[in-house]
Structures are given as C-alpha cells and as structure tokens.
Design a binder for these strands. Structure first.
Lengths: 323, 323
DNA sequence: TTCTCCATTGCATTCGGATGCACTCGGTTC
DNA sequence: GAACCGAGTGCATCCGAATGCAATGGAGAA
C-alpha cells in the first residue's frame, strides 16, 4: 500500500496536484521548468500515475479485451501473440478472456468485459444472434477476427475461407485429382463450416466423402483409416494439425504421402512447414489480418467508421501435395 | 457513453446508491427484498458495476500482469494459454505484456505494469539484479515462472533445468553413448544456460563440443552440418524446436536419426510429439507449474507467505533416441 | 508609467462505487 | 412501559487524477 500519489509529488515539488497531473499529459500546460521539477520529484518518489483513476475521468482505459476460445489447434496461440504485439505498438494492453466454447459462457464473459471498461473488443468467438442486443448495449467498439456478422452490423476482418478452400480445391482438380475426401472441423466452428462449404462446392462430383474431425492432430490420426476407405487420391483437411495427423495415420497403414495419396491442410501454421510434413496448405495472412484488425478497432475507438475487410489467403505448395 | 451508474439503479429501485453498492457485494448488508428489487432494476438498465471505480477504493483490480518475452520457440504460447485459464478459474484476468527481450524494455514494462495497478505479476522474463529495487518498490506480489531469483527474495516456480538435463544425459550415457554434442540456446536465456550447465556437468569427457543456437527450428537445420562434423553418436538440443531442426538438417546430409545418431530435445511441446519426430525429451510439467504459480501468487496477494517450488521434469523416450 | 494580454498555476469539482457512522424502527427484555 | 438491541438503510466522505474556471504575474504595447 502507501501508494505514491500525485499529491505526494506535488508537495515534494512545491506545486499543486493539478500541476503534477498536467506534467504527465502531453498537452498539459506547464512551463518547462516546473515540468522538469515535477518529473524529478516523481522519479525520486517512484511515482507512476494511476491509470484506473485517470480512466474514471477520461473514459479511456487503454485496455482491449481479446476473446478467444480454447481450441485444440495450434493456430490461436499464434494469433494471441500477434495481437498482443500489435496492440502494444498502439499503446494498448491486451486483457485476455477465454470462452471455453460453451455458448452460455459468452454472456458471462461479455458482462465481465463490460465491467472492466475496456476501450475495445476483439473477438474470435462465435456469438448467437440473440446476443446482438447485449453487445450493442455495451457500446464498446468491437471487431470480429475471422468471424463474420451475417448482417455486418459488427465489422470484421476475415480471411476468405470459402475462396481459399475453392482455390485449394481447383488446384487439386487442375493437377488431375478426381477422388477427393474431406476431413472437416467441428461443425459449430465458423471457419470449419466455411472451409467445408467452399471445398464441397468447388469439388462437385470429385467429392468422395467427408469425415468429421475436431481440428486436432490426434483426430487426424484416428480418422485416417476411415478416410482411406473412401479410396481417395487426395484428402483435404480443414486445418494443418489434422493434415499432419492424417499423414501419420496413413503411414501406419502403409500408405505414403504423396506417393499414394495427396494431403492438404489449411492455416499455414509454423508446424505445417516442418520438413517432414511440408504441407500444401492455404496460408492465412496473419500479419495483415492482425494489423487491419487493430486499425479497424482504432478507427472505431476514435469515433470513425470502418469497413469489414476480407483478405485472400495464399496457396502454399509443399510436398504433401506437389501441385 | 451515458454509462449506467449505481445512482441510476438506485433511483429506479427507489433506494440510495449505497444500497446498490451493497447489493452487489457478497457481504453487503441488505435485506433480501431490497436486494432483489435492486438486482431487478439493474437487469432492466443493463447495469454492470465499474470495476475500476471499485478498485480505487478496494485496492484490488482482479487483474494479473503476465510478462512474457517473445520467443522463437513453441513453448510460450502454450504457457500463456494455460496461465490465462488458471487465472480465470481464480477470478482473475490476465493483462499481457510482451518484453521483446531487450533489457531496457523491462524498466519500461515494469512502469507500465505498475500504472495499471495489477494485483500480481507473473513473469517469465529475465531482469537484471539492479532492477531489484525497482520491483521491490512496486510492492506488487510477483512470482517468477521458470526463472529463479539468485537470492530467492522473489519466489519462483521452476522446473529443475539442471537436473532435467542431467537425467537426460545420464540416460544417454547409460545407453552407451560416448560422443555427445550439444546445441545450445541463446546464452542470455535463463533456461538455456541451466540446461547447458546441467548437460555439460553430467557429460564429463563424453562431451565432444557445443554449438550455439537460438531455440528456433531453422537454426537447428542450419547447425546440423557443424554438429555432425563433431562426429557425435548423440546430439542434445536445448529445446524441442531445435531438435526437430537438427533431425531435418541431418536428413539433408543423408544422416538418419536414430540409426546414425541420436537426438534429444527439451520442453515436451506438442510438436515434439508429432510421430515423424517423436522426440526423446524432458517434459516440463506445465499443468503443475501453472497451478503452483497461481496458488503461490494467490498466497502472496492475500498477504500470506509462499515458498519457491522446484518441480522435476519427466523423461520421455521417443524414437529420436530410443533409450 | 499604465494597461493589455497571455502563459502559468491553483482551486474546486468530478468520475463511479465502497464504507464508517448515524439514524430508524420493529421486536425484546426486565 | 422504558430501556435496549440490531438489522436495514442513508449520508457524507474518500480513492487518485483530470479539467473548467478564476487568479496571478511578467512582458510588451501605448
């Protein structure tokens, strides 16, 4: 306790509390001499302004809430890291909330978020349409990350999952693949659904079947036999982790990639680039997505408008499907 | 704006502001009837208590700062995820700070941390001895994660790097390996140093040389030739990512693992368990480390004492070094 | 020299909620 | 019937910093 306050600094520097306050804000009107004296006194006392007290007046906390759902994939931890970094560059700190996927948690989390008075929200968590009113009520700027609002009331930055899946698919078709199986992600996951739709639409009659998955490496291994039973010449996995799992599951069955069957992933994670997997995959432009998300949020926080952005992923050809 | 305050709720419920405040705290003295009336009014208005205003009085923010340094490895993102989850269970939120490793950033970050009035700090970032006074001045409970304070003034939860390295080493020696090379991590990194010392001490004359690394997969690939030139029968890499890199770099030279040489990692990351690498490694008990860290911090935040904990890693034998 | 004008500075108030203290009132206890 | 008790409630104040407004004083203009 015994927190050092602006009054302590004021006393020490022989000025008033308001002078101290002004010395610590860019546009505060103080003479250079007093400011120097105040900063010196502050240094001696180890004073740091209390941002919470400040925010009570200014209405700004410099905190941004990031809502992420725990996932089995290797993608989100990367996203969190990138976001924290990008926010930091904008002088914001990241307050992290995990929604464990259960829908009822979303309400709870949103209430918590609002209690912390964050300046903005970045969410990669799904919310049901009837939460719309609740979110609107928060009056906190929000940007969806790789999720879209059907009516675009809440702006978003996404990687075009449909088109990415379609691009990957046509590349396979152009390379002569005709029997293509799919390993899907959890059906309640936004990106999983859109990747799946995009693939199926583009595949047409080349689609020999879909097997359900959960985005994990282990599930890729477990589903390999079932996929192989469909006699595919290529297997499209809806994320990288599962693709690696499928490759390994197939190996156990004596089936080699790419000799016997091609395998593709989706995401462009670091693990997918490991030489022993070297996945053909669709790379989501994480860097751009993150910086666009932050600038969109910045715009909203400054009362400006912003539009939803849809970025295109980049096809990466590895040895798992040598297009 | 137009924030809903406790006064609004009070007016609507026909009570005083203090009654509202009491209705929202467990041990507030209010009759069941009034509380119900207040909660109802609050619900209608969409009121959520302002935690920042509250913290101004109570001195508690329910926020814990986590300081992490950006690293090239795959380990930290996992740690952050685990920590956020564990903190959440204790009703705390995680405010994330990245120190990009540069020492001068540490001061800056610590000052920022103190401005946010967090209840506690968990750090996996190194700080120089002369920062001790600065941190003491914050008076904020702090627990070091996988870092140790030489004089144990600041408590820590660590995995015994020395002993883990020694265990890994003796296992190799017992299995008959006699020419062991080491791929080290960045020398300014705490865990890298201790793993290295532990290994070298235990190796004795079986040590045929050390090559410097930076914890990244790419560096593992790049250093493979140099390591192989030492004519080792086993290569100990100071983390999993580098071990995978070394295996791949050796493959490119026509050297196979484990036939021609054994390779070991350190950490026990998810990627290390991928079947095509299947690393022999030392698994750090992440779950336990995280929960001990949180309970230690809890103790400190409640004014209690706590002692530093040193956990032992677990040797995991994979095919990269079939002990 | 006297009057403006502007740059500094201090005073008082405010943000939203917690809390010590005093007060009310229905129910006990002699 | 008087003194007492305690649960429920409101009043006033406080936490730490920001800010509108008024006061001060020195420089420059007339």
């Amino acid at each position: 306790m015994a927190q050092v306050t602006s009054y302590d600094v004021a006393t020490r520097a022989g000025v008033s509390q308001s002078a101290v306050s002004r010395a610590f804000s860019e546009n505060g009107k103080v003479s250079a001499a007093t400011r120097a004296r105040i900063l010196e006194a502050a240094r001696e006392l180890g004073y740091q302004p209390n941002l919470l007290a400040r925010s009570l007046i200014t209405g700004r906390t410099n905190m941004v809430a990031v809502l992420a759902s725990q996932t089995t994939g290797r993608y989100y931890p990367e996203v969190v890291q990138y976001l924290a970094d990008a926010l930091d560059r904008g002088g914001k700190k990241m307050l992290l909330f995990f929604t464990d996927g259960r829908i009822e948690r979303v309400d709870e989390v949103l209430n918590e978020v609002s209690r912390f008075q964050v300046d903005g929200i970045i969410t990669s968590t799904q919310f049901a349409p009837d939460r719309r009113e609740l979110i609107r009520g928060l009056k906190t700027p929000m940007v969806l990350f790789n999720r879209q609002d059907p009516v675009d009331e809440f702006k978003s930055v996404t990687c075009d999952q449909n088109r990415g899946a379609a691009a990957l698919t046509s590349a396979l078709l152009n390379a002569g693949r005709r029997r293509i199986a799919i390993l899907g992600g959890s059906p309640d996951n936004y990106v999983a659904r859109h990747r799946l739709y995009g693939s199926i639409d583009a595949l047409g009659s080349a689609h020999v079947g879909t097997v359900d998955g959960d985005f994990s490496y282990e599930c890729g291994i477990a589903r390999a036999r079932e996929l192989w039973a469909l006699q595919p010449d290529a297997i499209m996995c809806m994320n990288d982790s599962m693709a690696m799992g499928v490759m390994d599951g197939l190996s156990d069955l004596g089936v080699q990639t790419p000799t016997d069957v091609w395998v593709t992933g989706f995401d462009g994670t670091a693990s997918g680039r490991l030489k022993r997997y070297d996945l053909t995959t669709l790379i989501q432009p994480l860097d751009d997505m993150v910086s666009l998300t932050c600038s969109a949020l910045d715009a909203l926080m400054n009362g400006a408008d912003c539009t939803s952005q849809v970025l295109q992923g980049q096809l990466h050809v590895g040895r798992s499907a040598p297009l």
